[in-house]
Amino acid sequence: MSQEGYDKLVAELQRLESVERPKASAAIAEARDKGDLSENSEYDAAKEAQAHLEDKINKMKVSIAEAKIVDLSRLSTDAVQIMSKVEMTNMSTKAKMVYTIVSENEANLKQGKISIKTPIAQGLLNHKEGDIVEVEIPRGIIKLRIDKISIEA
C-alpha cells in the first residue's frame, strides 16, 4: 500500500480507539443504568455496537501489521503493477477509463482507485502499453487496450 494509505489507516485506528471506543463504553453504561438488563434492548444494542467496533479495530490492526509500503520511486511503468495508473480503452464501446491499482484498503471507485483483487486489476497485471487484454467480469468478457501506464506520486 502507499504511505498515504498506511497513514490514513493508522489515523483511523487511533480515532476509533480514542473517540469511538469510549463512546461505546459510555453508551453501555448509560443503558445499564436504565435498569433490568434482561429486557433492556438499548443495552443489547450498545453491546452489539461495541462488538462491531472491536471487530473493526482488530481487523485494522491486522491490516496495519501486515501492510507493506510500496516505494513509488522504485516502481516501473514497463508493465501494470500495484500503484500503476492505467489509462485504457474498452475495445467494444470505445469508452476511455483510468484506474489506479491499489491495495484493498485504499480502493475507492469514486477516486478511480480499484483494488488489486478486482477482476479488471487482475486482468491488467503484468501487461504492457499497447496490449489488448481480455478480462472476465461478472457480466462477461471485456477487451481493454492499455493506452498508458504511469505512477502517481
Rank of each mutant, 00 (worst) to 15 (best):
L124G: 07
K117N: 10
L125K: 11
Q3I: 14
R21Q: 01
D36C: 13
L13Q: 07
V98W: 08
A95L: 03
A107L: 05
L109F: 09
S25N: 10
S115N: 08
G130R: 14
R139W: 08
T118D: 06
I69E: 07
A45F: 08
I114P: 00
S84N: 11
S73N: 11
N105A: 05
D71I: 01
K61L: 11
S63E: 06
S25G: 09
S63Q: 07
T118V: 07
K8H: 03
I101V: 11
E12S: 08
S103L: 06
K113Y: 03
V80T: 04
I64M: 02
V102R: 00
E48W: 12
L13M: 07
Q111K: 15
S73W: 09
A29L: 13
D36Q: 12
A51R: 06
I151G: 04
I116F: 03
D131I: 14
A79D: 12
D131C: 15
I142Q: 11
S103T: 10
I137T: 11
E66F: 01
K68Q: 07
A79M: 15
R21E: 02
A46T: 10
S2K: 03
E66P: 02
D7K: 01
E39M: 15
T118Q: 03
E136R: 06
A49G: 05
M60S: 05
P138A: 14
K59D: 08
K56R: 01
D131G: 13
I132L: 05
M88Q: 03
K56Q: 00
A27H: 01
Q81F: 13
D33K: 14
S76V: 10
A107S: 08
E42I: 13
E152T: 04
Q3E: 12
Q14P: 02
I132V: 10
S41M: 15
L16R: 00
E54H: 00
I146N: 11
R32A: 12
E152N: 05
D147R: 13
D44N: 10
K148A: 09
I28K: 15
K85R: 08
S25Y: 12
K110I: 12
L72Y: 04
E134N: 05
